[in-house]
Design a protein around this nucleic acid. Structure first.
Lengths: 193, 193
DNA sequence: AAAATTAGACTAAATGGTTAGTTTAATTTT
DNA sequence: AAAATTAAACTAACCATTTAGTCTAATTTT
């Protein structure tokens, strides 16, 4: 990939994440990327196509953060997945922002949905396995249980600006560590028989 | 309030919720509201002011859903608050959408933040009271615990479109009832000593 | 090896549609 | 009478997209 194209994608990710599709400006992207506006249209045939390219690029990287837990029990695996999820959201703020923008505006990002579904289904399946083996407490609606847990993780990141103040003046790393501990604790308590 | 103004606010809420600030079109609002565009500028001096008015209007209604729990224990009160929160989000989909749009785009809605903070602080305080009276389990970071619970509630609504499929072909009322049960269960298990 | 050609990366400037916001004068509602 | 509302034309700015061309390094032809 040419240097210009790479820079464009990188800058466009930022712009789309911060301003949303409608708020994003091609002019601004070209200026920030230090390339001519026409170069964007040389590489991508429209704003929409640029957006799609940005998303695909982003999810390609996201997929590489695989969910192959290595624990010796379902409970441990669930905890591991949540911790990975927390780390991923922590290190990829643009991911969260793009997701928020897309969700808010019903933009269907086929790729996103595909991977998203896979992720949800995997985690739900993981828990159901634990119930089958008798390791985890049986719940009436595993899907609702997992949605709740994932929501508990996600919310902090998506509403970061509004929520952060409640944690006081500590470093972000400390908050992340607290978040992990809380989630671990919750999962333990909620899955034991 | 004049009938036209009311209709404008109502229609603008929909438009802003669905399209976001940048995506929303004044022409479209006037057309949908069945009023002349000039009337919008007669009542509001700019798009920005219209948006602010919409938000204020929305939060005024939101506040009226007070959080004055009537249970006989902190645990019961927490459960009640969460159930009210679930109902509120269920019956006010535009609220969720506007919040999502605003969060995604760092639009500072002073009023929103004010009420939001109050809500968070109230619930956190509620739990801390339970710890003090020895009724609830002591946790290292009550704020993180409450954020997790609120996130668990909120997520379903904000990501409704992506998540709903995992619940199968049941009515929305049934899902809401399942959600309430799951949250009640979670709160019970997590707060007991 | 020199000359001709190509292909890809890139640019400056124009085009044209869209959209927030205005204006004015008239009409209707309270 | 005052407040609310309409109609329709207008403008100024913004912004996605196009056009027509340059530059450069590699490849092919002579």
């Amino acid at each position: 990939m040419s240097q210009g194209k790479e820079k464009i994608l990188q800058t466009a990710l930022q712009e789309f994440a911060e301003k949303g599709y409608d708020g994003a400006r091609i002019d601004y992207i070209s200026k920030m990327a230090g390339v001519n506006k026409a170069l964007i249209y040389y590489h991508f045939k429209s704003k929409e196509e640029l957006f799609t390219a940005v998303i695909n690029d982003l999810f390609e990287k996201a997929v590489s953060v695989s969910i192959e837990p290595t624990g010796t029990s379902v409970r441990e695996n669930l905890i591991q997945v949540m911790e990975h999820f927390i780390d991923f959201l922590h290190y990829n703020p643009y991911f969260v922002k793009i997701m928020d923008q897309s969700v808010a505006q019903d933009r269907d990002i086929f790729h996103q949905l595909h991977h998203q579904n896979f992720f949800f289904e995997t985690v739900i399946g993981m828990y159901q396995l634990g119930v089958q083996t008798g390791e985890c407490r049986k719940v009436d609606h595993p899907e609702d249980f997992i949605v709740s847990l994932l929501g508990a993780v996600y919310f902090y990141f998506s509403h970061h600006k509004a929520i952060r103040k409640f944690y006081g003046n500590i470093s972000e790393e400390e908050v992340i560590s607290i978040r992990k501990k809380t989630m671990k604790d919750m999962i333990s308590r909620l899955t034991f028989l």
